[in-house]
């Protein structure tokens, strides 16, 4: 029983990380039709920024944690916004080229991170509360899992409120539904593009700092390895669907944890799940039917 609870909550913690990346990917794809390969780099840079802050302020203190999360979010947001303004916008309406540019950016930035921080993982020794465990039904759960889950829930709640209660949220939702119509009504969708990228950057930035706590290290390849699973989550959940991304994150991560523990083949199961979903229901769980 305690193993079951441990796997379940660890899976939820991993799912929270997946969601933080996949939510941005999904919104960006839904609104702009761009598959953002650079999303992993947003995450990695934020993780390194958070790591640098944590190293100076003290990684084990609450101040250090919040400050590194804040810095990570800001760094992710700025990086993402600049990417949209400088690289995506000049290629407006040329989707393949936009994807290619993000591919180039991810290759270039990963190499740059390797140049700055070295190619090997840097392990972080957090102590104190984040490293301790809390017993739930007899299962010792590392506390950083709770922080990840709480952060993902906050981001999910914030996004839902933003999308449903604000004017910009309305524009974004309308744009995902039918961008041509929104443009025809005289609304400048391009502002929404930058906004969506920035939001995605914030979520990925928070995800990056939390991922470095979850895995206990930062490395230039941190984002890339998570990005592949985030892609899978996005596709399974349905491109452009926030709720789909949330459900699929939890589904994929929990399934992965259980399959890893009992069969040792978690990653393969996830890939198989993706293949099955795409062949049975190509638009994903909650996606719109393919246009």
């Amino acid at each position: 029983m305690s193993t079951f609870v441990l796997l379940l909550i660890t899976g939820l913690g991993l799912g929270a990380l997946y969601f933080l990346i996949a939510s941005g990917l999904s919104l960006i794809y839904g609104l702009m039709g761009v598959l953002n390969f650079a999303h992993g780099s947003f995450l990695t840079l934020a993780a390194f920024a958070g790591f640098e802050v944590g190293r100076r302020v003290g990684i084990s203190t609450w101040t250090g944690l919040f400050l590194s999360l804040l810095v990570g979010a800001v760094v992710g947001a700025v990086f993402a916004a600049l990417t949209e303004l400088l690289l995506i916008r000049p290629l407006y309406k040329r989707h393949i080229e936009q994807v290619l540019v993000t591919v180039g950016l991810s290759l270039a930035t990963v190499a740059l991170f390797e140049g700055i921080w070295g190619p090997d993982p840097i392990f972080m020794q957090a102590s104190g509360w984040m490293r301790q465990t809390t017993d739930i039904l007899g299962a010792p759960i590392p506390n950083d899992r709770f922080v990840s889950i709480a952060a993902a829930l906050l981001v999910l709640g914030g996004l839902v409120l933003f999308l449903n209660k604000t004017r910009y949220g309305l524009i974004i939702r309308a744009g995902v539904e039918n961008r041509a119509m929104v443009t025809a009504l005289g609304i400048d969708v391009r502002k929404a593009f930058t906004l969506v990228f920035t939001i995605g950057g914030v979520a990925a930035g928070i995800g990056g700092v939390l991922a470095s706590h979850y895995f206990g290290y930062v490395s230039p390849l941190l984002g890339g390895s998570l990005l592949i699973f985030a892609f899978i989550v996005t596709v399974i959940g349905g491109m452009g669907s926030l709720a789909g991304a949330a459900i699929a994150s939890v589904l994929v991560a929990v399934l992965q944890q259980f399959a890893n523990f009992y069969l040792g083949v978690g990653d393969l199961i996830v890939v198989l799940l993706l293949a099955v979903v795409l062949l049975v229901r190509p638009q994903g769980l909650l996606g719109k039917a393919a246009a």
Binding site: L87, L100, V101, V103, G104, L105, S106, L107, A108, T109, V110, A111, L112, G115
Partner: peptide, 9 residues
């Protein structure tokens, strides 16, 4: 890879 990525972009 940084130079190649930049060239590619």
């Amino acid at each position: 890879m940084f130079l190649l990525g930049t060239l590619f972009i």
